[in-house]
Simulated assay, not measured.
Amino acid sequence: MKTKKELRNRCWIDIDGKKFFGPGRAQLLVMIDKNGSLSKAAKDMGMSYRKAWSMVEDMNQRGQQPYVELHKGGTQGGGAELTERGKKVLAAFQNMSDKIQATLEQHTEEMLGLI
């Protein structure tokens, strides 16, 4: 029987020992930017609005500056958009993740060959 081997890595940022930002939150920011709506972003990700709202609140409160600006509903409904800081954090995280993935790909064959 052939054994399936994978080299995997997950990267996230902790603040005071508690997870703050990683792939899930990055994806949430991508979906907010795409949809202009927290509820649509949550739905597309298969998570509850409450969980998405909690994640955004955490990022906005524990980050140096807010990442998402939420607009209350009205005649045209509410919405959400990334702040400039949110866009910068997302771009930097995606860039870093791409570099980490490229490094993993360079070493996968050698590493898995030794296992």
Rank of each mutant, 00 (worst) to 15 (best):
K87F: 02
R85L: 09
Q64T: 12
R50T: 14
G79Y: 05
H71Y: 13
V56L: 08
K88F: 01
E69Q: 12
G63S: 13
V89C: 05
A80T: 01
L70P: 02
Q76F: 08
G77L: 03
M47G: 01
G77T: 02
W53L: 12
R62H: 10
R85I: 07
T83L: 02
E69S: 12
L82S: 09
R62D: 09
G74Q: 01
G73K: 14
Y67R: 11
G73Y: 05
G74V: 01
Y49N: 05
K72G: 10
Q65A: 14
A91R: 08
W53T: 03
E81R: 15
V68P: 01
Q76D: 14
H71I: 13
G74A: 06
Q64R: 14
V89T: 11
G77E: 03
Q65C: 05
D58M: 03
L90K: 04
K88E: 14
M47E: 06
W53H: 15
R50H: 12
A91Q: 11
N60V: 05
K72R: 15
G74W: 01
Q65W: 07
Q76L: 14
G78R: 06
G63W: 01
T75E: 15
G74N: 04
G63D: 12
S48G: 15
Q76K: 15
R62I: 02
E69T: 09
G74L: 00
L82F: 06
E84R: 15
H71E: 13
T75H: 09
P66G: 04
L90G: 06
T75Q: 13
